[in-house]
Design a binder for these strands. Structure first.
Lengths: 198, 198
DNA sequence: CTAAATTAGTTAACTTAATTAACTAAATCT
DNA sequence: AGATTTAGTTAATTAAGTTAACTAATTTAG
């Protein structure tokens, strides 16, 4: 039985969307050519007409999620102007994204970036660039700005990773701990600014 | 071809050690029953006499790595007494462990802890308990102590995760950024201590 | 000291996933 | 209308995980 009409035929975007649907419903192990083909009602080899195998599928999904995350943050940061507020809103936006779509967050974070990667590198750099703009208002030297970016990024994503791994079992609200951390990070940034360069 | 003498027969520990050897040499994808059986010179089904399949193997490996990490940190912290130094030494020890054995670090961190887990939970809790002892000398209330633990843990492990994902590509020494972060965290802890409880 | 019971391994067979190759027929282009 | 493209197909290969049935060396009990 041949192929359906062209209008009904799939695009790489359709495949990626189906993969993300599987991912959301069944977790990372569902992110495979066979599972996604079943989701789309086609046979596994047909996937190869749109994306070159499992690795390419994973990569395309990760890039798509990075874009979703960028849009998610952009929307929430719209209209926020004070650097301190931007940092907090950005932190909450990231955590909210991770809590809304845990498997997407995991795939996004596990994505291995190779510096030669001419598609992924600019996308991810751009996504993180808003943080640079936020921190720029703290009037830091270039090296200190990078240090601050790395710290904030590490703390926020590290918190979320630990939280999602189920390692925050102590008797204390994780929401409150996160809020306290964001405040403490702002103080830490100021410390980096004021520290003498050794 | 029956079985070898009992003295030559394998133990679960042997299987775990072989699995970690595969992991170190070939990365996470080598962490499977078949690959490990080949490493040991036996057939895949024989693994099941020692560990109940792939999931159990992964779990046992993760727990073993947690223990190695605990020993690694204990050794480096031996003799260090000032809380500030302990925090820094602990941070460096963790990063050094991750850089020495990247796949082990990844497996350890990806290990999903379920609170019902009566074997893993105490082990991991105990491993992180030294941090509690360090922070206790900062004289924090219980809630603040938990907040500080979560922040320090998040920042250190987040930094390492981002570093290992290859996302630290900017023109700035990652060693220096890490050092700056540890100093800033100490200030952040003091801020948590001094902050009024809202 | 022999006979029974254990048990660490085996082989054989099944399932599922990824992948490649060869094929088919609908849609498009001249 | 006929040639070409191409989105799908089926068939076959490889590899991993798993289960079941078997085997023979070791241990243990009588």
């Amino acid at each position: 039985m041949g192929r359906p009409t062209k209008e009904n035929s799939l695009t790489p975007q359709d495949v990626i969307a189906a993969a993300i649907a599987c991912l959301d419903r069944e977790g990372e192990s569902a992110l495979g050519v066979n599972r996604v083909a079943r989701e789309l009602g086609i046979k596994p080899p047909a996937i190869y007409k749109h994306l070159d195998g499992n690795a390419a599928l994973r990569r395309a999904v990760a890039l798509s999620i990075w874009q979703q995350y960028a849009a998610w943050c952009r929307q929430r940061l719209n209209g926020v102007n004070s650097p301190c507020e931007m940092l907090k809103v950005g932190g909450h936006a990231t955590r909210e994204f991770a809590r809304s779509y845990p498997p997407r967050y995991r795939v996004m974070m596990q994505f291995q970036l190779y510096s030669e990667d001419t598609v992924a590198a600019p996308l991810i750099r751009e996504t993180l660039d808003f943080m640079r703009r936020v921190l720029q208002s703290y009037d830091l030297s270039e090296a200190k700005l990078i240090d601050a970016m790395r710290m904030v990024n590490a703390a926020i994503n590290g918190f979320i990773a630990v939280e999602q791994a189920g390692l925050l079992t102590l008797e204390r609200s994780t929401d409150a701990s996160f809020e306290v951390m964001l405040d403490a990070l702002i103080v830490a940034i100021q410390h980096i600014r004021d520290a003498s360069v050794e």
